[in-house]
Design a protein around this nucleic acid. Sequence first.
RNA 1: GUGGUUGUAGCUCAGCUGGUUAGAGCGCCGGAUUGUGGUUCCGGAGGUCGCCGGUUCGAAACCGGUCUUCCACCCCA
Length: 456
Amino acid sequence: MAQKPSTPKGTRDFNPLQVQRRNYIIQTIKRHFELYGFMPIETPSFENLSTLMGKYGEEGDRLIFKILNNGDYLDKVDEDLLNNKDSNAMISQLSDRALKYDLTVPFARYVVQHQNDITFPFKRYQIQNVWRADRPQKGRYREFTQCDADVVGSNSLLQEVDFIKLYDDVFTSLQVNGVTIKINNRKILAGLAEIIGAADQLIPFTVALDKLDKIGEERVKQEMQERGISSTALEKLQPVFTLTGSYEEKLEAMKGLLSSSEIGMKGIEELEFINQSLKSNQLKTATLDLDITLARGLNYYTGCIFEVAAPDSVKIGSIGGGGRYDDLTSIFGLKDVSGVGISFGLDRIYLVLEELNLFPDSVRAGVDVLFINFGEMEAAHCSGWLSRFRESGIKTELYPDAAKMKKQMSYADKNNIPYVILAGENEIATGKLTLKNMMEGSQESLTIDEIIARLS
RNA sequence: GUGGUUGUAGCUCAGCUGGUUAGAGCGCCGGAUUGUGGUUCCGGAGGUCGCCGGUUCGAAACCGGUCUUCCACCCCA
């Protein structure tokens, strides 16, 4: 029985135009990564399960795609676990490998594994697919592409400044104006938790705070209370909920609030430095916005955190994010190496460009010129011309069969081929080819050199 | 992982409280038009109604399961 073909949940096929457009975004990002001194590396699609587990929190562990062991995979499983159907406890016995969940943790593994061959600070970029067993939604897939740039082995805040400028440059180059780069610092969040006496509940506290712009002040407070944060603590936190003004104004207000917290003040200092550095070298189209409620899920961030929001007119989640992680490599045995990095969400950037109609016309599938096939003799004559076109960098093809003119023209039309060349008996005799502009419907008689000069 | 939603021709969708042979628009193929596409006209092909099971004399429609789509949580790019 013929089964209806489909791709697995949360995955997609890409047609030629979509691939061209994705490549356009990737090329733009790559170019800027390299301009900023990042070099490409690649890591395997799957890692040892133990490399990934526990790095993204409990929720993250659940969303990792595990690969079932080969062979008699039930043989090694503990019988009690099997009888109790204790799936979670059995995972480590059923699966040794898993698809990578992001690019940062495999990168940390790479750094530790190759530490003797690496010269620090090490700057790398990586553009590869990652997989998450999440429920798909708009702009959320189970297989998607991340474009990461990270630097490890440098504590300098100039790295953070560079990343902000890199974001600005890439989105300026893609003509996405009005992007907001939100910045915060985990040290400030730690300071806040410390001051309200919830230092041991940093993660639930930040997760709740992160939802402020989405669910509002009341429900955030409610969630915090449910997680055991007292009402006197919430009172101390009140200024955070009503914080407004410029970057500097917000920073000043936070300074007052955090004056008794050493770690909090350290965070303030860092954000001040970044703001100061950007004054002399302003952003082109992006806006830098201090957002104290920005938390970001990943547990390994320790310093500055970033998130890029699409222009207001496009309703989509963040299109990029990143931050500093002081201790990621220590899990793999390399201490005192600080890392900081950012990520571009290719699939979502694609949706933004599509919605705002920002893909250049030059980014399209198909050739520039189609030669009409009039028959064996004429096709043979065209062969030399085809080569000359291609040597000049003009994408060219000859219709493979001497089909009816209508069919050949229709092929050009449907593939959005801008020019058609008619080289039949008359043209071959005179050496002047008929060049038809498919957009305008006009045509003229020109020599091969004239056509090449015009199209290249 | 929780709650809801969707699936009928290649695409977008109609199809009444269950009743003969399941429709439309667009697209596709052929012709009008043997060296000219997009417009027009004429003709044609194409569906075991997501899949499996159940109820019924009878199911695209009702019920259960499953897969898929989209949405809200959770979380996140």
